[in-house]
């Protein structure tokens, strides 16, 4: 494979402005997990003018609902869930300075426009490679919404978690470009 870019979360604009679609990255540092239900709660708090349970500025959110950690392990299987379900909520978080999202599958036009406007990237990790992903997770703790079980918000310490840039800050989309390249007729 080509060059792999190392990202250390939380991110700054400088970390991501050189990245283009198709770039392979590995992510280290601290990231947060959230799925639909958590996003819904975040938005409610934002509308009410209340503080969110996690910092947003410069952060990466990983769309994942892991399996419970078996004894002796930090976390269970932890692969990405489909991202479009977070689309209605993402622009507001991008406006607050969210810099990266990791999931799988296409984003809406509104999210893509917000990524360009507020300079943030969307990365895909391989959906279904959940046992492999869990090996990059070194620490995990629930920081909010424990009652939601697998949908609770967790803070993860990750080391070299592999992903690929799907939407860059320039408005490109790897899903469109990749498909075009291999389409027959």
């Amino acid at each position: 494979m080509d060059k792999v870019y190392h990202l250390e979360a939380p991110l700054s604009i400088e970390d991501i402005e050189c990245l283009k679609i198709g770039d392979m990255v590995d992510v280290s540092g601290y990231i947060y997990t959230a799925r639909d239900a958590a996003h819904q709660r975040f938005l409610k708090l934002i509308k009410e003018g209340k503080e969110l349970p996690i910092p947003i500025e410069g952060q990466i959110i990983y769309y994942v609902g892991p399996t419970p950690a078996p004894p002796g392990k930090v976390i269970g299987a932890a692969g990405a869930t489909t991202s479009y379900r977070m689309d209605p909520y993402s622009p507001a978080l991008l406006e607050m300075g969210l810099k990266g999202m990791i999931g799988k599958g296409r984003r809406s036009n509104e999210v893509k426009e917000a990524m360009v406007k507020y300079k943030a990237i969307y990365m895909a990790s391989v959906g279904g490679a959940a046992a492999l992903m869990s090996r990059s997770i070194k620490e995990a703790s629930v920081v909010a919404y424990e009652e939601m079980g697998p949908e609770a918000v967790m803070k993860l310490k990750v080391e070299k978690m592999p992903a690929i840039v799907v939407n860059d800050i320039f408005g490109n989309d790897l899903y469109n470009e990749g498909k075009k390249k291999y389409r027959i007729n």
């Binding site: 392990k73 269970g76 299987a77 932890a78 391989v126 492999l132 697998p150 990749g178």
Partner: peptide, 30 residues
């Protein structure tokens, strides 16, 4: 034919090996 595609398929094959060995689910969506 795609290099990225090959890399993904390799990751899925590796994932299956880890899951079987560590007795951890193939996918978090069980």
């Amino acid at each position: 034919e795609s290099q990225v595609g090959k890399e993904i398929l390799n990751q899925l094959i590796e994932n299956a090996g880890i899951a079987r060995h560590d007795m951890i689910p193939i996918c978090q969506d069980t």
